[in-house]
Amino acid sequence: MIQISVKTLGTLARGLRVIEAIAAHQPIGLTDLSRLLGEDKSALQRTLATLHDAGWIRPLPDSPPRWQVSVKPLVVAGYALTSSPLPARARPLLGSLRDATGETAHLALVDDSTIAVVDVAEGKQIVRTTLQVGQVHPPETSAAGRAICAQLTPDARGAFAPEPDALLPDSEYAEIRRRGWSLCEGAVQPGSTSIAAAIPDADGTPVAAVVVSGPDTRLTPDRYARIGALVRDAATELGGLRLR
């Protein structure tokens, strides 16, 4: 982590916390937001007015108003993803994975201790696994999390996972490294199976994962090795970028 030795802006930090809280609990009013964040109402009201004036949040026509985020965060996220090298390179590969497997393929990026979906090539079958951009994968139980954790040392793995006791035994992470892909059978979404491979940056640090997911009635054990090889090859092709 880069350390910047300057004094931070508390008001800006408060504003960002407010946006995150509204997004997670919208629509939400001043009283509930104040209780949720433990913030003084008058200070929080000024923050809400500032965010509204800047176009980041908007009120519903209630009295008193309840707040929800505007489309501005989506616009900013869109700019960030289309200009970021890894998602741009991954997009055609996700489509190829979807076409080769018939299942949903997606890219998940690592940001500190969060693994978030940033792009999805949705399967074309009527019954399929669906994901939303911004959806968070648990590091301990998801296929993406297991693939990423397998590339970390045991100490780094424990620090990365919010629930270290839920991590796999070291021997299972060694097996994931050996074959190049991980597996999740219904641990995150019942009835859905996922296969993932970690994407390393130029320093070998896992920064993302590419994942194929489908209903367990279709993504069956006899398909694991073939799909795992496809996912592993896609991750290898995407690896090695200088991202940090």
Rank of each mutant, 00 (worst) to 15 (best):
D170F: 03
I176Q: 05
R179L: 13
E175F: 07
G186R: 08
T193R: 10
R157T: 01
S171W: 02
G158D: 05
F160P: 01
D170Y: 04
V188G: 00
E175G: 05
P190T: 03
E185C: 09
E163S: 14
L167K: 06
Q189A: 08
P162W: 02
Q189F: 09
L183N: 05
W181G: 03
A174C: 01
W181R: 09
D165I: 13
L168T: 00
S171R: 08
A159S: 08
R178L: 15
S182L: 07
G186Q: 06
L168A: 07
A156L: 07
D155S: 12
Q189G: 02
I176M: 09
R178A: 15
E175T: 09
E172R: 13
R177P: 12
S182Q: 10
A187C: 09
A187V: 11
G158T: 10
T193N: 11
A187M: 12
S192I: 15
R177M: 11
L183A: 05
F160S: 01
V188E: 09
E175Q: 15
R178S: 13
E185D: 13
A166C: 06
D155C: 06
G158M: 07
S192C: 10
E172I: 07
G191H: 03
L183I: 14
Y173C: 03
A156N: 09
R178F: 09
R178P: 04
R179F: 06
P190E: 13
L168M: 12
A174L: 11
G191S: 03
S182D: 10
P164W: 10
T193I: 14
C184D: 14
D155T: 15
R157A: 07
A187Q: 14
L167P: 07
E185M: 04
R177C: 12
P190I: 01
R179C: 13
A187H: 13
D165P: 02
D165M: 12
R157V: 00
D155M: 14
G191T: 07
R177G: 11
G191W: 08
D155I: 14
D155H: 12
W181L: 03
P190Q: 11
W181Q: 10
P164K: 01
E163R: 15
S192M: 13
L183F: 06
V188W: 02
R178D: 13
P169K: 05
A187F: 06
G191Y: 02
Y173I: 01
T193D: 03
Y173G: 02
R157W: 03
A187G: 06
A159Y: 02
C184P: 04
F160H: 11
P162A: 05
S192P: 02
C184Q: 11
F160D: 02
P190D: 12
V188P: 03
L168F: 05
A174D: 14
A156F: 00
S182A: 14
A174I: 03
G180H: 08
A156H: 07
D155A: 15
G180P: 13
C184T: 04
Q189S: 14
A156W: 00
G180Y: 10
L167N: 06
S182N: 09
I176F: 05
G191I: 01
